[in-house]
């Protein structure tokens, strides 16, 4: 074994990849442009939602008199009013409020992990990454419950022309209103949920690498920063999904 170790030195010339356009590294720039492309995908969903929503009649009348009907678009506080453990209690938008808080909180713990990475504080990076994974997983679990409830339906259901009652929702019919309402719910929240799931997988990889000291040896925690960008983007998308699906 030799006493001196010669480390492989990265080339730093402008045309050797040592140049950083916009003072951001290659990986970070590519993450930004990937997120930009992902914005286009979600914009397509948003456009579809806007057009379909516009094609249906809005509900006119008071919220108290509201009943589910295929004649008009349902009002969200009557569809999303359930909370785990409170069966039959009308709690409009309470569960989605909790989900929103969990996701915003996970975004905060993510920034804290990135901040700890800047200080080369391995212990703190591990701690905050674990919190982020925990909050992210809780969000996905909440969404799973929300979906299960949406698919199972209310106790009342919807009276069909043949006299039977239909409960819950699938892609072909649902008790809440027009067919496309449930379809858009599944596609938009489902696509967002898939993003959250991918984020959790990336965060777990970050956590394993941090524990193994990969980033400490590398001298920087930039990989955590890049995954952080993705994670905040997922939170950003939820802010829009929340507004257009649950509030408007």
């Amino acid at each position: 074994m030799s006493t001196t170790t010669t480390l492989e030195q990265p080339k730093t010339g402008t045309w050797d990849g040592g140049n950083e356009p916009m003072k951001a590294s290659y990986g970070k720039l590519m993450m930004w442009f990937f997120l930009l492309s992902d914005t286009f995908t979600f914009a397509a969903f948003l456009t579809t939602y806007g057009l379909i929503r516009h094609r249906h009649n809005p509900y006119i009348g008071t919220a108290e008199d509201f009943t589910f009907s295929t004649a008009y678009w349902p009002i969200p506080e009557k569809v999303f009013n359930a909370f785990p453990g409170f069966h039959g209690v009308d709690l409009p938008l309470a569960f989605v409020a909790l989900m929103t808080m969990i996701l915003i909180l996970s975004s905060v713990t993510m920034v804290l992990a990135v901040e700890a990475g800047h200080r080369m504080d391995k212990q703190d990076v591990q701690k905050w990454l674990l919190w982020t994974i925990l909050f992210g997983s809780t969000f996905v679990a909440c969404q799973a419950w929300e979906w299960a409830h949406f698919i199972t339906g209310s106790d009342v259901g919807m009276l069909m022309p043949d006299g039977t009652r239909f409960f819950g929702a699938n892609l072909a019919q649902n008790e809440y209103g027009p067919v496309l309402f449930a379809d858009l719910f599944f596609f938009i929240t489902g696509f967002h949920g898939t993003h959250v799931f991918s984020g959790i997988v990336l965060l777990i990889i970050m956590f394993v690498n941090t524990v193994n000291g990969t980033y400490q040896r590398r001298g920087h925690y930039e990989m955590v920063e890049k995954v952080g960008l993705y994670w905040h983007f997922v939170d950003l998308v939820w802010v829009f999904v929340f507004t257009f699906f649950y509030l408007v």
Binding site: M22, A24, V111, G228, H232, F233
Partner: peptide, 16 residues
């Protein structure tokens, strides 16, 4: 606020 502060875009270069 998410993009400017959490994603740090406010503190990047103008061109980015």
């Amino acid at each position: 606020f998410i993009v400017a502060e959490f994603m740090h875009l406010k503190h990047e270069t103008k061109s980015l």
